[in-house]
Design a protein around this nucleic acid. Structure first.
Length: 274
DNA sequence: CCCCTATCCTGAGGGC
DNA sequence: TGCCCTCAGGATAGGG
């Protein structure tokens, strides 16, 4: 569910409430997520102080005084929230960490169980990051060149390439459609056919759209909430996503929905002519 | 190597 | 009311 801006917002809010706090007793539902949770590892992580929470793309890291680092991926419906110990448990709560010397706990909730709770040491983390593309939230010239180069090497549609976390991180199904609309690029266009100017414009659109989404607290359609259980506001500002058969805000042509690799893409056939 | 599909899950919503 | 279908913000294994 959450894309880059949402995960970044979760990391940001969790960092504020977890930093310098100690994760205490842990409770597990016992159900399997995308992969089996390593119970032994998690139990060995009890009574460890959190130093910071951050993320790279859609992967969230809870750093602690000792390794390994806790790692979370939210999949489609994952939530990582701080709640009062006595607050009613949401259905599908799978992991709870008591936060020592407070009345709060950290909870992982995941309806569809496509997420992951795992751990890694610094070496494994570096290995994971090395397989991922540049981060639009922190892009330098080399990063832009790397992304442009990936576009040039792919005959797949630009929409599909934007979703590939090896090309760049943080773009999911919502922001792929939004970025293509913003840069007037047709989602069917082959990535390798983009001109240098188009590629540059698209990368700029991705950066501004992800940053704006983060500042708006993320996009909430059904489940997404940040670490404080707060919904986002960015859904109010979407231009094409989930607007099938509604008029384009620019030219009033009806927005179309198509399928690419089994996933919906929304675009304006007039503003984004092939 | 690339490309495509099926798959992991639950729940909401539409048509009949 | 219920049943069956499609759809959903992600990522990966496995076949061709």
């Amino acid at each position: 569910m959450p894309e880059g801006p949402e995960v970044k917002k979760i990391a940001h809010t969790l960092n504020l409430s977890l930093k310098n706090n100690c994760l205490g007793e842990i409770w597990l539902s016992g159900l399997k997520l995308r992969k089996e949770i390593n119970t032994t590892m998690l139990k060995s992580r009890q009574n460890i102080t959190v130093t910071s929470v951050d993320c790279y793309g859609k992967v969230l890291f809870i750093h602690t005084h000792e390794q390994p680092i806790l790692m979370a991926q939210m999949g489609m419906t994952g939530q990582l929230i701080i709640e009062d110990q006595r607050a009613l448990l949401k259905p599908h709560t799978h992991v709870r960490w008591q936060i020592k010397n407070t009345s709060k706990e950290l909870r992982y909730i995941d309806i569809r169980r496509f997420g992951l709770i795992d751990s890694c040491d610094e070496a494994k983390k570096a290995q994971i990051l090395s397989k991922l593309g540049p981060d639009p939230f922190n892009l330098d010239k080399a990063g832009v060149a790397k992304i442009t180069n990936s576009f040039k090497k792919s005959a797949k549609s630009i929409k599909e390439v934007l979703l590939d976390q090896k090309v760049l991180v943080g773009v999911g199904n919502i922001y792929a459609s939004e970025a293509l609309f913003n840069s007037h690029i047709n989602p069917y266009a082959k990535a390798c056919d983009l001109s240098t100017v188009q590629a540059k414009k698209l990368i700029d659109s991705v950066i501004s759209i992800l940053k704006k989404a983060f500042l708006n607290g993320g996009t909430t359609f059904s489940d997404y909430v940040d670490g404080d259980n707060k919904k986002g506001k960015n859904q109010q500002f979407l231009q094409v996503f989930k607007r099938e058969q509604e008029p384009c805000f620019i030219c009033h042509t009806n927005i179309l929905r198509i399928k690419q690799s089994g996933r919906s893409t929304f675009f304006c056939p007039s503003c984004q002519e092939l």
